[in-house]
Design a protein around this nucleic acid. Sequence first.
DNA 1: CTGAAAGCGCTTACAG
DNA 2: CTGAAAGCGCTTACAG
Lengths: 339, 339
Amino acid sequence: MDIREIAKKAGVSISTVSRAINQPHLVNKKTRGKILAIVKESGYVPNPFARGLLTGKTSTIALVVPTLKNPIFGETAEGAESYLSFHGYSLITYSSLASMERYQTIVDNIRSRKVDGIILAGSGIFQRGYQEPLEDINVPIVAIEYLPGNTTMSCIYVDDITGVKMALEHLIFLNHRRIALIAGNPGMIVTKRRLEAAYKTLEFYNIDIKEEYLVSGLYAHMESGYTAMEKLLAVDPLPTAVFAFNDMLAIGAIKCIKDKGLSVPHDISIIGFDNIPTGGYISPGLTTINQPCLDIAEKAAKMLLEQIAKPATSVRKILLPCELIIRGSTSENRKKQVS
Amino acid sequence: MDIREIAKKAGVSISTVSRAINQPHLVNKKTRGKILAIVKESGYVPNPFARGLLTGKTSTIALVVPTLKNPIFGETAEGAESYLSFHGYSLITYSSLASMERYQTIVDNIRSRKVDGIILAGSGIFQRGYQEPLEDINVPIVAIEYLPGNTTMSCIYVDDITGVKMALEHLIFLNHRRIALIAGNPGMIVTKRRLEAAYKTLEFYNIDIKEEYLVSGLYAHMESGYTAMEKLLAVDPLPTAVFAFNDMLAIGAIKCIKDKGLSVPHDISIIGFDNIPTGGYISPGLTTINQPCLDIAEKAAKMLLEQIAKPATSVRKILLPCELIIRGSTSENRKKQVS
DNA sequence: CTGAAAGCGCTTACAG
DNA sequence: CTGAAAGCGCTTACAG
């Protein structure tokens, strides 16, 4: 079924068929009606390759996420996909971003596919050197991450600097002074930013930052939160509270503490970041900072489409607020202060 | 950068460049070397639209999953993507399969994009009527689901009939006789099959099947496992064990039982299905049936690529074994039997 | 408002 | 082993 057949059935030229589909206002109403009826009846859809070859548009967006193992990226993908598909775009999702080589492969693939735009989500990709491969790619890019300074791409993210502050203040107001941190993958932008925000907050409240109270794990694996917590449990004196940089890490840490016969929150309070559904189903429930993933994903998709429609649009940076979700994993510190 | 430029630089015709790329053995070794060197240096990649227009091949596979909220589909997507991208294919993932309309939209979209093959994962899609929209689509399809009878598509799945049997026998051998079921979405093939397998097993062991002991929820939401469990807790006498049709439901059910002041497994044992990572981090740990998602996804991708390469390949059906994972949510029944 | 024609960038018989 | 030519299915100035 091609445009020629439709033209023949309708008794017009293929130019007119094409116009009836793409620029209906240019076609006589009656003719247009007839053509569109035939199109509909026959289920004809223009060949995307012929179209793409001519227009350079593909109606395809690439989404890059570090891993679908972390539910927040599943939500991100669903949010973006539902918005984009509603607007006639398809989403190609690239996940399992393990190495720089893999990233290079992905970028090559994106480039050769000639997508209309790119969403870069989660800072798995934002280690040093992520920008060069993208340099001459020449399509709009939106990052789901906070990119400081002058960047060529727009970005949207949760205001996690404030989020970190809220998390730590929650612990501090509960009278905790021996606070440990389980950071995520070293080197990621998000890790550095949260680390910096954490130190700044702790300093502000005159809280000593013991070197042994900083450990790190991998965002995508609960198990690494467990391992990180093991290290903290070897420190003397024990921390009375732990802030894990995401919920996966926090959930692993909670299990570790319980396995060692200690109690959360009685012996150690734990707070996470993200608010993944699982946090509400473990016990105690996980106190955390909510991140509106779905909303962010949709807004990112929207921004991208706007940039595609109007390439001259200037770079935008949007920060969404986050929210403290208090459940059972944090409580007031009743231990004598040693530090 | 197009093929013409490469040809000019190499001092050959565009035909020769094309051949050097696509059918290297047809080109003089020296010429070929020269051309390929220029191609590499310039970063030239053939325009996929021109190519697609000519060959009808797109190097794109569509994956349809019910939702990325359930981590098993995240794994499925990652598994398929990593295998396919290694073989030069991209994956377009369609998720959030809420309604039949949405399904129709997805199928329309897939059709107009002219993908090379389709993977249909998770039986969210396999309600009645899922086959018609696919009827004349004319590309290889592999389903991640067990499709009985004579179908036109190949399928691969875990042998969940045996899995259901293993789960129930585990409970039965622990001396449980009052066993309740939390089934998933009614109407789905997977639900019907597991239900049938469950009844068959219970009958085999002469276990009464109380009507009130069958409730159902939605696979994708832990919360609906909670709600379903609430219904079971209103039944007299209480079941001593519950088999939930997936882990999300099971995790919701456990939370419900604990919230009502009862103990898992002391008062009620719970077993799930899937073995999602979270199951190892709640307390008690979730006893469940492992489903090798990653393996299934890769095998599905492999089958699909084989069918694309050799369209005459006959329909294949593969069932992978599952495995009982015993954690803390099940234990021996010590209550006096009433039934 | 409509049609004939050029051309998007490539692949592949065909001829040599 | 290589090149000239046709053509994949469409869109869009251009002319009328």
